[in-house]
Nucleic acid binder design. Structure first.
Lengths: 153, 153
DNA sequence: GCGATTTAGTTGAGCTCTCAACTATCGGGG
DNA sequence: CCCCGATAGTTGAGAGCTCAACTAAATCGC
């Protein structure tokens, strides 16, 4: 049985293409800046941020994966790299012998602290400086709705 | 000389995190669906779309790179793969002997035609269904502003 | 014309991500 | 107690991306 495709109307088409172009350009730019200035991709930066804000600067791998929006596998590989760089350490979880705890080292924290100002400046320049306060508010609502919609289903 | 960092205020912080979570979840979801249903990542799909809309279903590599928001290197690798899959063919450019023209094959067009309905449905379900018409309009303006801001600088 | 610069595109190495398969442990039901 | 399904995390292979280096051809400036 044939199911009719609900094609995008011209407005939606235009929105979708603009969105694609903008989000790709934004993330590519930030990723490149972070790689150049801090020697790490944005995904790794996010992992360090999440750890830095967790109590004791440590998290179970699963929770860290969720917080950083990463798959378990991706996180496993990433933490292996971060550990090799000396920014993260892994310890056994005392309450669950399957578990691993990732914790931010001093060096990791220092690296993050050094990278943060430049990165924040980048986010501001490339994103917020281009938008009006009303648009920032709109973007927040849209993103929150979307995030819930996507992780809910 | 010390330069003060313009940190993000709580609203901006919240906006940025929501944006990150939403855009990552959206692209990951669409990418996975496309990979599963059409056997190609979203980046390749976009290349095929651009070719399919170009006159004669062909474009110079540089123009294609720009249209698809890709670096030259990335496009070169991608087209090599697409060519191996039989979806794209490369020809010498008659007016510039440095140039290469990428053109969509029949198979490539057929593959794209087969993949499009499912992908469009995904975009609709994961993005537009969650937003009000006003929000779609807001997202379009924000994205267009942003895209111009990013590619202009 | 002709050397210097720019532009078009490719290539290879190294890195990250995905997917599927795998080990090990936990927790519940007979 | 033991089996069984679920959960935690890792691993390896393969694919895609980035960066820098490279070739070749066009174009600029004199």
């Amino acid at each position: 049985m044939a199911v009719m495709t609900r094609w995008l109307d011209p407005d939606e088409q235009r929105t979708w293409r603009a969105y694609l172009a903008a989000s790709r350009a934004l993330m590519d730019t930030l990723d490149r800046e972070l790689q150049r200035d801090a020697g790490m991709p944005h995904a790794y930066y996010e992992i360090l941020v999440q750890l830095s804000e967790a109590p004791g600067r440590q998290l179970r791998m699963s929770q860290l994966a969720q917080a950083a929006g990463s798959s378990r596998s991706r996180l496993s590989h990433a933490v292996a790299r971060l550990e090799a760089a000396g920014w993260v350490r892994r310890e056994d979880c005392p309450t669950d012998r399957r578990g691993q705890i990732a914790l931010l080292t001093h060096e990791g924290f220092a690296t993050l602290a050094a990278a943060a100002p430049g990165h924040v400046e980048g986010v501001r320049r490339h994103l917020f400086d281009a938008l009006s306060p009303a648009q920032v508010d709109q973007l927040r609502r849209i993103s929150e709705t979307l995030a819930e919609h996507l992780t809910g289903s």
